[in-house]
């Protein structure tokens, strides 16, 4: 088994469920109350994928439309990010494009996955699977629908992101034998 430690970021508009997604993944719980995150909260979680024991340092960042240099500095050294939108708020999907551009300007090789969260709110859903599919093609990443409330696809999202990060590291090693 090889061990790796990777920094991943949670990015997206406010109240899309970034903190709840992390809480579901790390602690296996869900809290219905909305508490805005300011600054950054870092969580660790170890998971085993393929032949790797990966420790993820998950940077849960404040959401919203602040794309300042302060936010940019938080993204340094990130190997990947989950770009989260709320499937009941179409405008939260539009903001994802700016987050994708921001992290790619800091770390161009970062692995990204788009999450359409709150999939449990079926009746209020305004962002369809085909919207997510089309959007993920535009920003060149994979996508999943998730529910931090029920836990649907949450582990899957982090596992897939880790697999992508590891695969990219592999490629980098093969491209540059010195690393």
């Amino acid at each position: 088994m090889r061990t790796v430690q990777k920094k991943v970021c949670m990015l997206g508009d406010f109240a899309v469920g970034k903190t709840s997604t992390v809480q579901r993944f790390v602690e296996g719980i869900f809290d219905d109350r909305y508490l805005s995150t300011i600054g950054v909260k870092i969580n660790r979680k170890q998971l085993t994928v393929d032949d790797y024991v990966a420790t993820l340092l998950i940077w849960d960042l404040a959401g919203g439309d602040d794309f300042s240099s302060v936010t940019q500095s938080y993204l340094r050294g990130a190997s990947g990010a989950l770009l989260v939108c709320d499937v009941t708020r179409a405008e939260s999907l539009a903001l994802v494009e700016r987050y994708a551009a921001q992290i790619r300007s800091v770390t161009p090789s970062a692995s990204l996955i788009l999450l359409g969260n709150k999939i449990d709110l079926t009746a209020q859903r305004t962002v369809s699977d085909s919207d997510l599919e089309a959007f993920s093609k535009r920003i060149n990443c994979g996508w999943l629908t998730t529910s931090a409330k029920t836990g649907q696809n949450v582990d899957q999202a982090f596992v897939q992101l880790t697999l992508q990060i590891i695969a990219k590291s592999h490629l980098a090693e093969h491209d540059d034998p010195a690393t």
Partner: peptide, 28 residues
């Protein structure tokens, strides 16, 4: 401080730059 993991190369570069510092605000 896990907040600095991944930023090591940038921190080293910082040592040679008089105008920059590395700050992480509102760490929860």
């Amino acid at each position: 401080f896990a907040e600095f993991i991944g930023s090591e190369p940038y921190l080293r570069a910082l040592l040679h730059n008089p105008d920059e510092h590395y700050a992480i605000k509102r760490v929860n």
